[in-house]
């Protein structure tokens, strides 16, 4: 099976979708002729023409707002916001319009759009190239939120998102674009070609939205993670020797609660890990759900390891980013509690 980077896998997902359905259109800033600042849309304009893949003015509200109009017409736009940090001007369109169109019109109009956004830190991106705003989407009724952690899932989830009848926020951890990353920034990064999840089948397949994946089976403690933190958690388990069960959520909303609850009921312990800031982050929702659904099985408080409640700094990148050492400490503390 061919191996692809996450960039190639996401591009392939759009290629496959555009080939199968001429209602799929792709646009955003620098997405057309140039092929995107991360090369994710490279070659799509040449293959499908300017009517299907094109450059947009620098106006996030305009990109999402026009995509909503296109979706109301009957197209299936898959648009890009260059960095998740720059989605805020589009927040009105995403939360008040895309998310509610089906509900408020009782299905008279619908909004099958996908909004792709590179997200996450660990790349010296500073304040506006590192953010993880997923909690700002999961709090909005009517939006689905997806965060893939590997090329195989990225392709399958994106195709599923494009085919989904509702708006999907597709957050791409840019730290994972070229290879998995476990937080050990002082070591060379291995490329996806050396990783089994870099195997990406040709042609059409989907990974269903709303289904988590167990990346490491274990009996001592459940780790709930997504995106880059999946690899950080794996490294932390390995380095501490703790038999952790690591769940890659893949879709934050709808959430695969069954997989989470089954795991925590088995292990009796749970650590939630994300890059986003702690307070009111998605980890708070996960922690509350685990507490509500597994209270009598819990043998320790649910722990959260997250970004600090500060803007994402530049020089202090590795003091901010929740690396394997911090996650490992939380695993130990949870076991000792």
């Amino acid at each position: 099976m061919p191996r692809r980077t996450m960039i190639e896998a996401i591009r392939d997902a759009m290629d496959v979708s555009m080939e199968r359905d001429d209602k799929v259109v792709v646009f955003g800033e620098d997405v057309g002729f140039f092929g995107g600042v991360f090369r994710v849309t490279h070659g799509l304009q040449a293959k499908y023409g300017k009517s299907r893949c094109f450059d947009a003015p620098i106006n996030e509200s305009g990109i999402v707002g026009s995509a909503i109009g296109m979706a109301a017409y009957g197209l299936k736009p898959c648009v890009e916001i260059q960095f998740a940090d720059y989605m805020y001007p589009a927040y009105d369109q995403l939360t008040q319009e895309a998310a509610r169109l089906r509900y408020r019109s009782n299905g008279d109009f619908t909004c099958p759009i996908v909004v792709r956004m590179p997200t996450g830190g660990g790349i010296f991106g500073g304040q506006t190239h590192s953010q993880s705003p997923e909690a700002l989407f999961t709090h909005v009724s009517g939006l689905k939120t997806v965060v893939p952690s590997n090329p195989h899932d990225a392709k399958g989830l994106l195709i599923a998102a494009i085919e989904d009848p509702d708006p999907v926020i597709f957050l791409e951890p840019k730290r994972l674009y070229n290879g998995p990353f476990d937080g050990h920034h002082d070591r060379p990064v291995t490329p996806w070609s050396k990783h089994e999840l870099g195997e990406v089948a040709d042609g059409h397949y989907t990974v269903p939205l709303g289904k988590a994946a167990i990346r490491r089976a274990g009996g001592a403690v459940t780790v709930l993670a997504y995106g880059t933190m999946v690899y950080v958690a794996q490294a932390a388990a390995e380095e501490t020797g703790i038999d952790a069960e690591i769940i890659d959520l893949r879709t934050l909303l709808p959430l695969d609660l069954d997989t989470i609850v089954a795991s925590v009921k088995k292990t009796g312990r749970c650590v939630v890990v994300h890059e986003a800031t702690l307070t009111s982050g998605f980890g708070a929702e996960l922690s509350a759900l685990v507490q509500e659904n597994c209270f009598y099985h819990l043998e320790a408080p649910v722990a959260r390891v997250a970004g600090w409640d500060t803007p994402y700094p530049h020089a202090q990148e590795w003091e901010y980013f929740p690396g394997p050492a911090r996650v490992g400490r939380a695993l130990l503390e949870t076991l000792e509690a």
Partner: peptide
């Protein structure tokens, strides 16, 4: 909000 959505709808009609 609907002002830009109208433009998108019109773009879709042209694309189609």
């Amino acid at each position: 909000t609907q002002y830009i959505q109208a433009v998108g709808w019109a773009m879709a009609s042209a694309i189609s």
